[in-house]
């Protein structure tokens, strides 16, 4: 049947996108103004010879096309290169930051999707009601707020004035273990997670709401009502499953971005995640780190998109043959 061809086509698409991203990654950071050595040299007192040696060590003296070939070769062997500053392998640096990012961005994404979809569904079903109006405007306000600013407000309020939660960092300096450590991390996690969740909810709520409103106007919903399907079942069995289809793309897209971290919020809360690593690397034009993070993030986005496409094929009979 057509479904196999659909699958093959989607996988080929994903591979092609991946190849393009890998090559593009290389140029993207090299067209940024400035060069990493000058920036590194600024902070460390290095002689001209030292600098030249470092350049040669890092392979930055070779012509760009050759650098590209080396980069491609390394990438396909799974080598992400070394940090220009410390010389540590990039993969190790990223791996260290991955867990805090998964914790923060992953949990916020799951929470905001959950709450956002529920708000969107409930609001659309009682369109124009008190819940719909209040939730719609509240989520719009949070959605349009700069998230860094929202984070700072929450820090001032809950860390500064009330002193309920720490203002930043992943854990307390004290060496805690076991359960106490978990509580400590969760305590640190609360504010950045709240900020991200509040900031993301609006997007899901609005997309879900408008998608459900559209489906709600379809004749098959009226037909179901006319046949005597109870309101709850009209929503659960006819309206929501159809309205979820467009939302699914957004959900998978968001999950794809989790590993990329949250650059702004991780910086505001000094959260040792991939986002903050990116932020620091941009400051010093640390190409290998940037390339590594972008590659990782692109790969997950592409994979999640592929997963969404495949899932779509199962969920929407119209696409299978498409």
């Amino acid at each position: 049947m057509g479904s196999q061809r659909y699958l093959v086509r989607k996988v080929l698409h994903a591979i092609a996108t991946l190849l393009f991203v890998v090559a593009f990654n290389f140029y993207l950071f090299r067209i940024m103004p400035g060069d990493p050595i000058t920036i590194l040299a600024r902070s460390q007192h290095l002689s001209r010879a030292d600098i030249a040696e470092q350049i040669a060590n890092l392979g930055l003296d070779k012509p760009l096309p050759q650098q590209l070939l080396i980069y491609l070769g390394d990438t396909f062997r799974g080598e992400l290169g070394v940090d220009l500053r410390s010389g540590a392998p990039v993969s190790q640096l990223i791996a260290e930051r991955l867990w805090p990012t998964i914790l923060l961005v992953g949990i916020s994404t799951v929470l905001s999707i959950g709450f956002g979809l529920l708000i969107g569904i409930k609001g659309a079903w009682q369109r124009g009601g008190l819940f719909d109006t209040t939730s719609l405007y509240t989520s719009l306000v949070f959605y349009s707020m700069p998230e860094g600013w929202l984070g700072m407000i929450l820090i001032v309020l809950f860390a500064g004035l009330l002193g309920w939660f720490p203002a930043g960092q992943y854990e307390s300096p004290a060496d805690l273990t076991g359960f106490a450590h978990i509580v400590d991390v969760l305590n640190h996690l609360f504010l950045p997670c709240l900020t991200l969740t509040l900031g993301y909810i609006g997007e899901y709520a609005i997309v879900m709401r408008s998608s459900l409103l559209e489906v709600r106007g379809e004749d098959f919903i009226t037909t179901a009502r006319a046949k005597g399907v109870p309101d709850r079942d009209v929503r659960r069995r006819h309206a929501v499953p159809n309205a979820l289809l467009p939302t699914l793309t957004l959900v998978f897209y968001s999950f794809g971005f989790v590993l990329g971290g949250a650059v702004v919020i991780e910086s505001v809360f000094s959260w040792p995640g991939v986002g903050r690593l990116t932020y620091e690397a941009i400051g010093e034009l640390n190409y290998p780190i940037l390339q590594g993070v972008f590659l990782l993030s692109s790969v997950t986005v592409i994979l999640f998109n592929l997963a969404a496409d495949i899932l779509y094929g199962y969920l929407d009979p119209r696409i299978r043959e498409g």
Binding site: T223, A224, A226, N242, L315, P317
Partner: peptide, 15 residues
């Protein structure tokens, strides 16, 4: 009492 609508495509749940 049953109802039949104008647009048969919209009247049928696509899933």
């Amino acid at each position: 009492v049953q109802m039949v609508f104008q647009d048969p495509t919209g009247s049928l749940n696509p899933r």
